[in-house]
Simulated scan of single mutants.
Amino acid sequence: MWAMSESIAAVVVRAAELTARGMPRQAIELLQPALAVNPLHGEAWCRLAAAHLDAGEPDPALTAAKRALVLDGDPAWAQRLTALALSELGRHPEAVVAARECVRRKPRDWRCQVVLAEVLADSPGGQREAVEVAREAAHLAPAEARPFQVLGDSALRVRDWGTAERAYRTALRLDPADDDVRANLATVRRKRGGAPVPPPSGEALHAAHVLAWPVLSRLAALLVAGGLVLLLGGMPKPTPLLGWFAGLLVVACLVVGGLPLAKARGGVRRALLRLPLHRPKVAVVTTMFALSAVILAGWAVALLLGATTMQPLVIAWLCALVGGAVVVLAGGR
């Protein structure tokens, strides 16, 4: 029995080599007699199912994968093969169920996430979720090219050209010899060049506005109150120590201003970046606050270098005052 196990293990290795070289039919012919002698070898059934899938034969692949499911071995691999075979047969709901079970068994296995993304991309209504699942797979395996390829394929289906291009570029960096990825990347770049960027939806803009306005209110308080304190502290003549306080105020504004981007996800984050184009009051406030922060930063550096002027601080405070007035008068509408 030990010699037989060793023999079929060698057959499995040889079959894997044949499949990797693009000869799945030879791998099938090698595995079938070995399994007739030792039908309880789960890994061999998985390898047979994989070879059938590569040969474009989902029916026998599903049969072999189901045999592997009830035997000792790697159940997650058998579950992945089952999901892929069901998807090839057009049984998409069953394929999604099998792939989700695989992820449930091994949530940190990037290969399970990849298969779930693949079957979701082929199932009606699952294409958006496929992008997020593929993104998780890429997060779990940042050194593997396959998750990024699947992420690119999934993003391509929903016309998310930016995500698709970034994913394909990463996949090519990890595996420069993949001609399919290279061709898909060229397709994405061609389509992206002629595709206008769609405007954010009304719901995304509203969510972005709700997220951004309280932050603008806090920035108004910081810049107006902080600027007033600096004005009082700088009389009659500012010192380099005041420059450090001005620098800290600018850093605090950057931290507070970055909170919405850190909290936002997906479409809301994109809407945040484009919110000033669609909300004039937001555009005025952000412009005034940005000018105030930039002038404050320059004034802080000048103080540290020995300057003693107060004029930049006055201008920065007036910009903050204008932005703060818009925040107060608009009231978040």
Rank of each mutant, 00 (worst) to 15 (best):
R146H: 04
M4H: 06
G227I: 07
V37K: 14
E165L: 06
M288T: 09
A137S: 03
M1R: 07
A121Q: 07
W45C: 05
R128V: 03
R189P: 03
G266Y: 10
P312S: 02
V119T: 02
C253A: 15
A195P: 00
P260G: 15
G332Q: 15
L273I: 14
R182V: 00
H92K: 09
P276M: 15
A225P: 00
A134V: 04
H206M: 08
A121L: 10
A221N: 14
E136Q: 09
A225Q: 02
L48E: 08
L120G: 14
M235H: 10
D109H: 04
G298E: 02
G56I: 11
R265M: 14
E88D: 09
L120D: 09
H209T: 09
G243S: 00
L219Q: 14
A302C: 05
R169A: 04
G323V: 06
R21C: 01
V210G: 13
E29W: 04
R111I: 01
V11C: 15
A155G: 05
C102A: 10
R190L: 10
E203I: 12
A134I: 01
L222P: 00
G56E: 04
S5M: 05
P147M: 05
V255C: 06
H139K: 03
A65F: 06
M1I: 03
V301Q: 08
A121H: 11
R21F: 08
P312V: 01
A16V: 06
L232M: 05
A64Q: 01
A167M: 01
A61K: 08
